[in-house]
Amino acid sequence: MNKPLNKMAVQATINGEDTAFLCSPGQVLAEVLRDELDLIGTKIGCNTGDCGACSVLVNDRLVCSCLVLAAEVEGQTVETIEGIARGGKLHPVQQKLLEHGGLQCGICTPGVVIAAKALLEHNPDPTEEQARYWLAGNLCRCTGYDKIIRAVLDAAKTMRGEAA
């Protein structure tokens, strides 16, 4: 009674590496990243695009990977939390989250890092309000967002080359 194997071969650049994987047509990107590619840093909190824990960048665009079909990334560039720290050096957002204590349980942290990185690429000098609205799609139940926002604005400062 097993259904015939109905898999698609997909090629994409994931965290800078040419990657090929098989997926079923209905499978979402979050699931493939986690279950096929062992990129478990992408978290699934809701599977409905409401919590932002599965945030990734597709061609530098911030998306919920639970709302993107895996087959859609054929030929595209995907960046996940595993690709953010490069050459053993943390991204300033990661570093500042650590310094400010901007995480408690940490389940939302990968999504927050991805979303904040995208923010600072679009807007290197966001106001507090702009940072809050940009990150409104990333639910955090632990921190009340205070230290997250402070960390993101501090990271922006560092990236602009200003003293903290």
Binding site: R132, L135, A136, R141, G144, Y145, R150
Partner: peptide
């Protein structure tokens, strides 16, 4: 649940 844009610093 509250999102970042709902809140001030605490």
């Amino acid at each position: 649940i509250p999102v970042a844009s709902d809140l001030p610093y605490i």
